[in-house]
Design a protein around this nucleic acid. Structure first.
Length: 468
RNA sequence: GGCGACGUACCCAAGUGGCCUAAGGGGGAGGUCUGCAAAACCUCUAUUCUCGGGUUCGAAUCCCGACGUCGCCUCCA
């Protein structure tokens, strides 16, 4: 089977066919760096990560672009509040974003363009829209996109512009415009706001134009996949699509993918609602980063997902189950013959994994397939029906699937004093000195090493040290 | 007011016409193994898929209605 994706624009699930098989181009709406992103934001980023990882697993070369919005109202307000500059604010929170992303094992995008470094490209694009009659200026130097000039407006979000609730929440814009539904491409200069001198005049870019300019700069006028959270469908992506296609006359994006919200306490996780959790705080409080990754990744991306203490705890246990079988395979030694049915078992696990992800990146059945493999492998380890080479084979398959999941433990050697403690415990056990052996076992556990006895001797694995 | 999604066990969550007397993870109860543990394995934990009608030989899956929850229409991942 091949990868099938559900495209927001057409509403259809279609086989993925790259525009250019030698370079699949993916653009993801990244963070606005006015503060630390919350785990709801990261659900969306990790869903893009899953897409990119799976495309690469499937053998496609991928160029992944994720923008950083480093100028907007909130950043300007933040800078003003602390008497600093938008550059300082943006730099601080960009660094934090990258730290959190690394913590969650997010693939580093190939390009992470910053809006402020691409103002000329945005001005060019706006210039084209002006020339083509899709944009107009207002007295304060702002430039708006004229929705009336673009009949296709509303196609992505499946809304009729005429039905928009004009007047209730849409207006109240500080900038005068011909039609309240028109959106800002360029905001005229204000005394207390940063502004750029460009071919279209002085001012600062609107939000939507950033993504159009930067995606096209790095991926071309048409590219394969554009991702983001569902809340970006309208107006952000609708506006992006309108202005991009109005400027180029070409289809902007082949497949639009939108990730459902993360919920906490029965509602969308959002800063404004106050129900947010942050990567840094969670990790600080002892949550395993891999458990956090698992909890954000384990459900289908288009389904609302509940985030809670319980879901995190369940994720931690699931990841530990992976750790346990990984350690058991690493410690496994048997001179017996190869297990003749193992290749079929491994092939079945892999095909279940791929079938799940091929179906619009459905992680649930993919993970189910992995855990079914884990159970069967545990059985065979207990029955000692695998050879040493078989254990390596299982590890190789898990490693390969982990290119997509990124959940397996890091391979790190034990510190020398811990190695000594493990050896001392083996000696104590050999001497049947249970008191000393138990003492060392708990001492090791306090240092984050779980020791388990098997008929081949003891094996160890890293565990999260309980804190707080 | 408009548009849309969802409602599956104690919790999270797949499945969307027959392989479902419903994956997987977590939790709980028993058991096996073990010096004791831990891990692991085994058994049990939804004859049922919010409710009421209907279509069909057959529905958790399709249709209609009710109830409930959430989202978008405004900055938002």
């Amino acid at each position: 089977m091949t990868l099938r994706l559900l495209d927001t624009l057409s509403g259809e699930q279609r086989p993925f066919t790259p525009l250019d098989p030698t370079n699949v181009r993916v653009y993801s709406c990244g963070p606005t760096v006015y503060g630390p992103a919350h785990v709801g934001n990261f659900r969306s980023f990790l869903f893009s990560d899953l897409l990119v990882r799976y495309l690469r697993y499937r053998g496609y070369p991928v160029t992944w672009v994720m923008n950083v919005t480093d100028v907007d109202d909130k950043i300007i307000r933040g800078a003003r509040a602390e008497g600093s500059t938008i550059a300082a604010v943006a730099e601080r929170w960009t660094a934090r974003f990258l730290d959190d992303a690394t913590t969650l094992r997010m693939t580093t995008p190939d390009v992470m363009p910053r809006a402020t470094a691409h103002v000329p490209e945005m001005a060019d694009l706006i210039g084209t829209l002006l020339e083509r009659g899709h944009a107009y200026r207002t007295d304060d130097g702002s430039i708006f996109f004229r929705i009336a000039s673009w009949p296709a407006y509303g196609r992505l979000a499946h809304i009729d512009p005429a039905e928009m609730r004009v007047g209730e929440r849409v207006e109240s814009d500080e900038y005068a415009k011909d039609d309240v539904r028109d959106f800002a491409l360029w905001k005229g200069p204000k005394d207390d706001e940063p502004a750029w001198e460009t071919a279209i005049g002085r001012g600062r870019p609107g939000w939507h134009i950033e993504c159009s300019a930067m995606s096209m700069r790095y991926l071309g006028a048409s590219f394969d996949v554009h991702t983001g959270g569902v809340d970006l469908v309208f107006p952000h992506h609708e506006d992006e699509m309108a202005q991009s296609e109005a400027a180029t006359g070409l289809p902007f994006v082949a497949t639009w993918l939108h990730c459902a919200h993360l919920q906490m306490g029965g509602e969308k996780m959002a800063k404004s609602a106050g129900n947010i959790a942050r990567v840094g705080d969670l990790v600080e409080s002892g949550v395993s980063p891999r458990a956090l990754r698992y909890s954000l990744l384990a459900a289908h991306y288009r389904m609302a997902l509940s985030f809670s203490e319980d879901s995190l705890q369940a994720a931690a246990s699931a990841v530990e189950r992976l750790d346990a079988v990984w350690a058991a395979l690493g410690a496994y030694r048997s001179d017996g013959p190869d297990d003749a049915t193992l290749p079929a078992l491994l092939a079945e696990a892999r095909s279940g994994f791929e079938a799940g992800l091929d179906d619009d990146l459905n992680a649930s059945p993919a993970l189910a397939s992995v855990f079914e493999l884990v159970r069967e492998v545990n059985r065979r380890i207990a029955a000692r029906s695998l050879s040493t080479a078989d254990a390596v084979r299982v590890r190789e398959v898990l490693t390969d699937l982990d290119r997509v999941l990124a959940l397996l433990p890091d391979e790190e050697a034990l510190e020398s004093d811990l190695v000594a403690m493990v050896a001392a415990r083996a000696a104590a056990r050999a001497a049947r000195d249970w008191a000393e052996s138990d003492r060392l076992r708990s001492a090791l556990l306090e240092r984050g090493v779980a020791v388990e006895d098997t008929r081949d001797g003891q094996r160890w694995r890293r565990v999260e040290v309980a804190r707080g």
